[in-house]
């Protein structure tokens, strides 16, 4: 039996952390309740004491906890980020997920013994970039950006000595992560600094007859006909008009789902699968983690993924294999 891929699962709150652990996560990743992580949504994430309790719950059951500190520290205000790194280290987390060069430098020099993973927000999409982070900051794992095909991932893994983690399910950035300013262009809030894309404070839904209209700041993002499945009000899943024709020019409201490609990703040399969704409820976490636990174990035994229906939790109630298939481009 091959070694199963490590299953890295999201938790936006203590209840979701327990749900992920109970559903068979190998690792749960979390963030602090501030702008130091890329899911800085209102009412979400962990206080220091919640993380302490969460770590105890997870470690007691053999599950590891990674802490994402994956926004870019603000110039003139590095303290919240440095404190987040120090506190995560002091509380005993198993790895830090970092994106900023300066912060990686800080973590490497202050907490050399703590594992450092490169966040997808660093968008390291090629062998030289990955080597840079490995040589400069001793990064032990790279979360690959959602721009590569499975063939390219295999090629990459053949040339590098760090572990790679890829997104397996959930929200799908169609732009290179950490290099996208669409949301800040419309709202002034940046995923890179404030840790939030399409912030709820700027989202407005309006009923117009039998249609639902979503707005972000001063812009209309989409109009859903009655009964048409909806998506997040993110700009890259919006409907826009180009050359007189309205379409989902960037991407349809859809979720990534590679549950049927797990053997391919194993063959490509991937070490871990990441499930997106720290902003989702614990019902989502239970359902998705359970399904992937079975699929990852089945793949390790050389069996096909057991049938499961994750359709209802997907954005727009559709899923895609995204950039992993070349024709996506």
């Amino acid at each position: 039996m091959a070694e199963p891929l490590e299953l890295v699962c999201p938790a936006g709150a203590p209840a979701a952390l327990r749900a992920a652990v109970d559903a068979g996560a190998d690792v749960v990743y979390v963030g602090f309740r501030d702008q130091t992580n890329a899911r800085n949504f209102p009412g979400l994430n962990f206080s220091r004491s919640e993380l302490r309790d969460g770590l105890a719950y997870a470690h007691d059951r053999g599950t590891r906890v990674y802490v994402a500190i994956n926004t870019l520290p603000e110039a003139g205000n590095p303290d919240p980020w440095h404190r987040a790194v120090d506190d995560a280290a002091a509380l005993g987390c198993d790895a830090l997920i970092l994106a900023d060069i300066g912060l990686l430098d800080y973590a490497a020099s202050h907490h050399a013994g703590l594992r450092r993973h490169l966040s997808v927000q660093a968008s390291a999409s090629n062998v030289e970039s990955i080597r840079f982070y490995q040589e400069a900051f001793g990064v032990q794992r790279v979360v690959l950006p959602r721009v590569l095909t499975v063939a390219e991932i295999a090629e990459l893994n053949a040339q590098i000595t760090v572990e790679t983690e890829v997104f397996a399910f959930g929200g799908l950035c169609v732009m290179a992560e950490g290099r996208c300013a669409l949301s800040s262009y419309a709202t002034g809030q940046s995923p890179n600094v404030q840790g939030v894309c399409s912030p709820a404070s700027h989202v407005r839904y309006e009923r117009r007859g039998d249609e639902m209209v979503s707005h972000l700041g001063d812009y209309t993002i989409n109009v859903f006909a009655d009964g048409e499945p909806a998506g997040y009000p993110t700009l890259c899943k919006g409907r826009f008009v180009a050359a007189g024709r309205a379409s989902y020019i960037f991407e349809e409201p859809t979720s990534l789902n590679v549950i049927d490609s797990i053997p391919d990703l194993m063959a490509a040399g991937v070490k871990a699968l990441k499930i997106e969704g720290r902003q989702r409820g614990r019902a989502y976490v239970s359902q998705v983690v359970s399904a992937f636990r079975k699929a990852v174990d089945a793949a390790a035994r050389g069996e096909p993924a057991p049938a499961c229906d994750l359709g209802s939790v997907t954005e727009g109630q559709r899923n895609t294999t995204g950039a992993y298939a070349k024709d996506w481009r």
Binding site: M212, G227, R280
Partner: peptide, 16 residues
């Protein structure tokens, strides 16, 4: 917490 809020929003069962 038996169902996911985003899921029922996507399906349009929940409106806000």
């Amino acid at each position: 917490g038996r169902i996911d809020g985003d899921a029922v929003f996507f399906s349009r069962d929940l409106t806000i």
